[in-house]
Amino acid sequence: MAGSGEPSATRNAYGAALLELGRDHAEVVALDADLSVSTQSAKFGAEFPDRFFNVGAAEANMMSIACGLAATGKRPYCSTFAIFATGRAYDQVRLGIAHNELPVRIAASHGGVSLGEDGASHQMIEDIALMRAMPRMQVIVPADYNQAYRVTLDSYTDDAPQYLRFGRPATPVVYDEVPAEIGDGADVLREGSDVSLIACGHMVWRALEAADRLQSEDGVSAEVVNVCVIKPIDSQTVLDSIAKTGVAVTAEEHRIVGGLSDAVRQVAAERHPVPIFAVGMGDEFGVSGTGEACMEHFGLTARGIADRAREALLLKPIVSHPPLHRPDWI
């Protein structure tokens, strides 16, 4: 299992792990819609041409074909850009895959604005919301190459429909090697006591950097939680963290509606209400620019997270309260 120490795109991990799955399991098939080089499914296609179906630019068709394959005993992996996987093919995913509870993996690459130059038409910023709302669909957003590799490998053993979100740009690693397991889906990557920084995907390494800044510039101790499985969310890990710190900032490369922020807020609102500020996309579409320029433009940066944390910390003495929720009370 080839982990990476260097920055690498999560989509690359998908391509490599899919190939490994193909070698180990004859019933794994892969489908793509004319983006197989970008999504990295082409590696699988080169080695297993009989088990690879490139359907051309027809994403709706791809999802329904995957439904038929899965209903006949195969384990299909469908890759395309996040915008087409969710926006264009929503009804096909909904009826054919989620409703039928078929073991289809939707591997959506180029999520968020970090894909850069292609601009608003391609920058999918509401896919997590769409897929979270869909009954029976799991939503998984790995933080780096190594976690993406584990997520892809482990997807084989789960029978539930899964939406896997990968990104285009090379991303610094936050896991030194391919983790042994995903566990319940949320990891505390750095312990802290003043504020929780709860992030997913490309925002996790930025949250770690924000924690460094807060420590060095403000003397604030920030805890960093990587939520890889957004649905079903590991509410215990989230509650433990916000109960300890009393205030949180979520960070995602996605609309602040319906995504990680809302998932965390729902858990908190019912079990332990604290101020939770969100870093993400507002009521706006993406723009063209380099991936990093787009992230800067929308404040999806370590600095953006640190600034929100400072705002949140101002509120903490006013509205925070002793923990309502403590693990030992349950």
Partner: peptide
């Protein structure tokens, strides 16, 4: 296979045929 949203059945059938 579950159906009811028009237009999907032929694609689903093709997936079955490929399998």
């Amino acid at each position: 296979v579950s159906t009811g949203s028009l237009g999907q059945g032929l694609s689903m059938s093709l997936g079955v045929a490929l399998a």
